[in-house]
């Protein structure tokens, strides 16, 4: 009995694994203004640009990029953004955070700011801007249930667009190091013939992974001798 089940389920799983993702197109670019590099012990902070400026970057996207930067052989030391913001209260609140690097020298003159940044060995601030939006969708899917059971019939699709930009500020030099952008478009499908089969294109997760990888390369950068 167990053997029969295996024979039946294994092809199903294989087919499922092949088709359970939608279509994704992605593009990642970086634009370097200044040279980068990070020494052993130095770290980065990932922050969302202020929602006072209309930014909608999701909290879970920030956390995903934080985790992504820590991964791999080029993994960076990431200081959790809430810890950083609390330690420098009130200078990095949505209302008060510097919006341009030209504001950094004045910020560094404020009492205690340089010391707190030095204590945490923060070398770079990465400012995230952007969000994931549903830009299109269509189709029709209906479900019904009765005493004898239930089921769904139809076809639905939707397209998510994840556009993010990461601006990298060097706190040693008090200037912008450059930007990394990612644009990911994902189209998901859900055909249903009694059972709906979701074929999900994870646009945001893809945008997170690609941005984090590119940011790692960007920051570890061109000062090979200094790399952690």
């Amino acid at each position: 009995m167990i053997l029969n089940k295996r024979i039946f389920w294994n092809p199903m799983l294989a087919v499922g694994a092949l088709v359970l993702t939608g279509c994704i197109t992605s593009r990642v670019e970086d634009s370097r203004i200044n040279s980068t590099g990070i020494k052993s012990g130095e770290g980065v902070v990932v922050m969302a640009k202020s929602y006072h400026l209309g930014n909608e970057t999701e909290e879970d996207y920030i956390q995903c990029v934080e985790r992504g930067l820590e991964r791999g052989s080029s993994g960076l030391r990431v200081i959790p953004h809430r810890q950083f913001v609390d330690s420098l209260f009130p200078w990095f609140e949505p209302r008060t955070a510097p919006s341009e690097t030209k504001h950094l020298p004045q910020l560094m003159d404020s009492p205690g700011v340089v010391e707190r940044i030095a204590e945490q060995k923060v070398r770079y601030i990465i400012w995230l801007d952007g969000d994931t939006e549903r830009v299109a969708g269509g189709g029709s899917l209906s479900c019904a249930a009765g005493p004898g059971g239930g089921g769904c019939f139809g076809f639905a699709w939707w397209q998510n667009q994840a556009d993010y930009e990461a601006a990298v500020w060097d706190l040693n030099e008090l200037e912008a190091a450059g930007t990394v952008t990612t644009d990911v478009s994902g189209t998901s499908f859900m055909p249903a013939l009694v059972i709906p089969i979701p074929l999900i294109a994870r646009a945001q997760a893809n945008a997170c992974k690609s941005l984090a990888q590119q940011l790692q390369q960007f920051i570890v950068g061109d000062e090979g001798d200094d790399s952690a």
């Binding site: 609390d86 209260f89 009130p90 404020s110 009492p111 700011v113 707190r116």
Partner: peptide
């Protein structure tokens, strides 16, 4: 609660 602010 708010963190101790860096102010004089």
């Amino acid at each position: 609660t708010i963190p101790t602010p860096l102010i004089v």
